[in-house]
């Protein structure tokens, strides 16, 4: 009766065990076991613009994707390189302003400004963060938290690029579909690209830097170079997102350095599952629409996602993605002990 104790057992599915190594793929079933989640994700993302009922929700999709790119860049930097950057807004703002300046001052069309902003903005961010790269942990987090505030104040104080009014009248994308597919494809490319990248030999260097930077130095590798490279990858992703944002709203201003862009991607990463790369994207797809629904309530949405964030840090610190992965790859049963 009550003296009988039960224990939950988790066992890997046989198919997971066999398909873990690359060589063991023996049947279509195993192949589809591996590819199904990826296929569902890709197909789902690509069909989103058709599924959304109206303009408003299509716009929300674009915003979700922009946050997803930011969250990806945060996750990559924090959990694969060990640099916790609280400055997502710095990337967004820099990218947004670069795109805005290129478009409104030089008349370059959005097709070119987005990749240009990614490269130029990434370079600017990397250069500005270069002196901070030797910093660790809390120190790096604080300094990156300060950068967006600093940029906003500088632009305000010197009245640069339209000052507090920002740059208005920037070209939008040619059509809503172009806009959405651009951001969706960017998310997919970054997601799968980064997942592949972190398992390459060069990706291993980043993990090693996170684990133990002294040993990497003793192995004759210049860690500043690799950290700078990682920051460049992450910041150019963020800048690209910023450039898209500028063209979507046809405006760039100091509110692009606002806290939202720093805190929401972090919340999404924690909720989705830190260090999984797919988790942050998932987290954005949950958080951003809900916070859009709360838009009428003003600042309540910040309260909402900050409290969700605290809740997840406390009670589910491994995130939804890890939970789903476990359900997919293992089965559970109660056994007597």
């Amino acid at each position: 009766m009550s003296t009988q104790k039960l224990r939950k057992e988790r066992i890997d599915r046989g198919i997971k065990v066999r398909s873990d190594g690359l060589y063991a793929l023996m049947s279509l079933r195993e192949l589809s076991y591996l590819t199904l989640p990826r296929f569902v994700l890709i197909a789902g993302m690509l069909s989103l613009p058709f599924l959304m009922p109206d303009m408003y929700w299509q716009r929300v999709i674009s915003i979700v994707c922009i946050y997803a790119i930011l969250a990806l860049s945060f996750d990559f930097l924090a959990h694969y390189v060990g640099l916790v950057s609280l400055g997502g807004a710095f990337f967004i703002g820099t990218g947004g302003y670069v795109a805005g300046i290129l478009n409104s001052y030089y008349g370059i069309p959005p097709v070119l400004t987005v990749p240009l902003a990614a490269i130029i903005g990434g370079a600017i961010c990397t250069l500005m963060l270069l002196p901070c790269l030797p910093l660790k942990g809390v120190y790096f987090a604080i300094v990156t938290l300060m950068y967006p505030l600093f940029m906003a104040r500088i632009i305000e104080a010197f009245d640069l690029f339209g000052g507090t009014d920002g740059l208005a009248g920037i070209d939008s994308f040619s059509s809503a579909f172009a806009e959405q597919y651009l951001v969706i494809c960017t998310v997919l490319i970054f997601l799968f690209g980064l997942r592949r990248f972190v398992t390459t030999d060069m990706g291993l260097i980043f993990t090693a830097v996170m684990d133990n930077d002294q040993a990497v130095k003793a192995s004759g590798i210049n860690i500043t170079k690799y950290k700078a490279l990682a920051v460049f990858i992450a910041s150019s992703a963020g800048c690209m997102a910023g450039a898209c944002l500028t063209h979507i709203y046809m405006w760039s201003g100091i509110s692009q350095f606002a806290l939202d862009f720093s805190i929401l991607p972090i919340a999404a990463t924690v909720i989705g599952g830190a260090g999984t790369l797919a988790g942050p994207v998932l987290g954005c797809f949950i958080l951003v629409p809900v916070s859009e629904l709360l838009r009428d309530f003003g600042t309540l949405r910040i309260v909402f996602y900050a409290s969700v964030l605290v809740g997840f840090i406390l009670f589910r610190s491994d995130g939804i993605m890890v939970f789903m992965q476990r359900k997919y790859e293992q089965f559970e049963r109660w056994t007597k002990i």
Partner: peptide
Amino acid sequence: SISEIIASYAIGLVILEGLRF
């Protein structure tokens, strides 16, 4: 330390934005 920053910052946000709301 990072979770400490994020958690305490989020609490701060809840309080501040809650007050504002």
